[in-house]
Design a protein around this nucleic acid. Structure first.
Length: 634
DNA sequence: TTACCAATAT
DNA sequence: TATATTGGTA
């Protein structure tokens, strides 16, 4: 006798012998990884005259249930099983077959029982289970089927009023569906309702999906914050610097607004992780303090972050772009380090074979080609915005005089442009960056003499005050922004700094290593020398760096290049690195979130590798929504 | 009205 | 922490 028959009998009001005999022959699937318990359970169930099937593996149970969902009337499952948590099994069974599930555990902890019930268990039996308890389990089958027709025939509201729906557990399987749906929809359309439709999971509601979506975004945000802070702390430790030190607090919003020239960025926007906009991104992605930062610095993060992300995303979107380009020489190291970080730290479990050289050239060519794949992520660029993009070109073309006050003004202007034009952080700008760096910006004097010193002079000065390293030998550096002495002093201090580091590896540096040690073999010397002309002091810097601090080099060349191309260095890497190398605390979560996706490479027509990518893109979209124009994002 | 989404509650 | 619910908004 099947449940259908039971139901038929019940609903038809005809309760004949079959119904009376119902518990006899009820088909029970018993799941327990402990063979003794399983045997015991099997015996007891048989004594109750049930028709028993046993399995010691939860996955096998799920497989059996899926293959023929009408083959069982009830499931009894242990809570603790090695291959799959009993709660997950419960959840999946509840969602997919809607069979009554009884949880079984030696642990009678109320919380655990509650968890079982919350997850949809119709009962929770404590081991050792008694036959008296098993004799009555059939009632769950009846009860389940008695309720179900009502919920089908009556309105959901009514149903809810006396039967609260089981709390949804986002199992890996469910999450995978979610990710697949998001990927299938594309970022634009990935809203709860559509996701829900695509997931096609019984019992799941739009609210469930919305909640999950929100949670995912929030987790990504937390991860971002967390690792950016870590990064900045590391940068402070490694380089010292007023700029970095001040990236901790969050006051100074007013300053930012003033600089940005926009009143749209409300405090609410700042306080909300997903309110997006430049502030939201500054807040979330960089965790910056805007207080006392120069304008140019203020806005760099948002620019840099997107720039970097754009570049990085190209890798993912143009995986087949052929290698070999002179462009690679300049941009080399940036995407490589990012990707390698990602590969080695985040994606190591995915076992995706990747080739560094391909990654390098993929990035560069992807940008240079300006061949945007037919991807819904890529929205039309702002026609008003030329390829050079807002502050981008400005920054480069104007920041020629080293340490002139104009440098800062330019920074402000450029920053304003970022805001005004909104999106200098888009695909086209990524493209432009590539061209920019490879062709029109072969690290000429202007780079060395203006951009680099300009940044670093501040840092040099900052060393004097804040560096945890011993920079006392450079205390002669004065506020160097007005004349070229600053440059020299900067160089001296940098060289000293490097020497210091080489001579006395600090604890902070050791900490850094932990994070950066996953980088590839590229050394600072290699990268830097390919990017920076043989300027004496830089050569010495390079040399020094090259001796002991291979890993540092990646960060450094990122900084230099980033600055040179619009002044976004620090956050470029912070953001990106953070994304790619989540720290250990957040990683576990993230892995849970992303692992299912990683394992099904290529599921998404958009080519997202992970939900992280998707959500980053989604977040970017939201950020973009705060801005007037420019809708290219990734 | 519906759906989205940030905030809040559990 | 994970998920549900609420409430403002488009």
């Amino acid at each position: 006798m099947t449940v259908e028959e039971i139901r038929g009998n019940m609903s038809g009001g005809e309760r004949g012998n079959n119904y009376d005999n119902f518990p006899i022959g009820m088909r029970v699937l018993a799941v327990d990884d402990d063979p003794i318990c399983l045997k015991l359970l099997d015996g007891l169930l048989r004594k109750c005259q049930y028709q028993v099937t046993t399995t010691s593996q939860a996955r096998m149970a799920l497989k059996m249930l899926r293959e023929n969902r009408d083959r069982f009337d009830l499931v009894i499952s242990d809570v603790h099983m090695p291959d799959m948590d009993g709660f997950k099994l419960l959840e999946l069974v509840g969602l997919e077959m809607d069979l009554p599930v009884i949880m079984l555990s030696a642990n009678s902890d109320t919380k655990l029982v509650r968890k079982g019930i919350d997850h949809g268990a119709c009962d929770y039996l404590v081991k050792p289970v008694r036959i008296e308890e098993l004799r009555n389990i059939w009632q769950h089958v009846i009860r389940k089927k008695k309720v179900e027709p009502k919920s089908q025939s009556k309105s959901n509201d009514q149903d809810k009023s006396y039967q609260k729906r089981a709390r949804v557990v986002w199992s890996i399987e469910l999450h995978r569906k979610f990710v697949a749906a998001v990927g299938q929809l594309g970022i634009e359309k990935a809203v709860p309702k559509r996701i829900l439709d695509l997931m096609n999971v019984d019992g799941l509601t739009r609210e469930n999906v919305a909640s999950h979506l929100q949670a995912i975004k929030y987790r990504l945000y937390l991860k971002r914050i967390n690792s950016v802070q870590t990064q900045q702390a590391n940068m402070v430790a490694a380089l010292g610097g007023r700029d970095y030190v001040r990236m901790g607090s969050l006051d100074g919003l007013g300053d930012f607004r003033t600089l940005g020239g926009s009143g749209r960025y409300t405090h609410a926007a700042l306080s909300s992780y997903s309110s997006g906009g430049m502030l939201g991104r500054l807040n979330s992605a960089a965790g910056l303090s805007v207080r006392n930062l120069a304008a140019s610095q203020l806005l760099q993060p948002s620019h840099g972050q997107n720039l970097s992300n754009s570049v990085n995303a190209f890798t993912k979107l143009n995986p087949s772009i052929p290698p070999a380009s002179q462009n690679a020489s300049l941009f080399q190291g940036i995407p490589a380090s990012l990707e390698l970080d990602q590969l080695q730290q985040s994606k190591s479990s995915a076992h995706i074979p990747l080739d560094e050289s391909r990654l390098l050239t993929t990035d560069v060519l992807g940008c240079s080609n300006n061949s945007l794949p037919n991807n819904p992520m890529l929205l039309p660029g702002n026609p008003q915005q030329p390829l050079t993009g807002g502050g981008f070109g400005n920054q480069h073309s104007q920041n020629i005089t080293p340490f002139s006050s104009d440098s800062f003004n330019t920074g402000v202007n450029g920053s304003s442009n970022f805001l005004e034009h909104g999106r200098c952080n888009d695909w086209q700008n990524s493209v432009q960056l590539s061209k920019f760096q490879s062709n029109s910006f072969p690290l000429t004097e202007s780079f060395i003499n203006s951009h680099l010193p300009q940044i670093s002079a501040r840092e040099a000065a900052a060393h004097l005050q804040n560096s945890p390293l011993d920079f006392t030998s450079t205390t002669s550096v004065s506020p160097p922004f007005e004349d070229s002495r600053g440059e020299i002093q900067f160089r001296q201090s940098m060289a000293s700094a490097v020497q210091s580091m080489n001579q006395t590896p600090s604890q902070a540096w050791a900490d850094n290593k932990q994070q950066y040690s996953h980088n590839s073999n590229n050394t600072f010397g290699n990268n830097l020398s390919s990017q920076v002309p043989n300027d004496g002091s830089m050569a010495s810097l390079s040399h020094s760096m090259n001796q002991n601090n291979e890993n540092f080099g990646r960060r450094m060349d990122m900084s230099l290049i980033g600055r040179s191309s619009g002044g976004s260095s620090t956050l470029v890497q912070h953001t990106e690195h953070e994304k790619l190398t989540p720290d250990s605390r957040t990683r576990s979560n993230e892995e849970y979130l992303l692992e299912p996706t990683k394992q099904q490479v290529g599921f998404s027509p958009q080519g997202y590798d992970s939900l992280d990518d998707l959500m980053t893109a989604m977040k970017r979209e939201q950020d973009g929504g705060m801005l007037d124009e420019g809708t290219i994002w990734i």
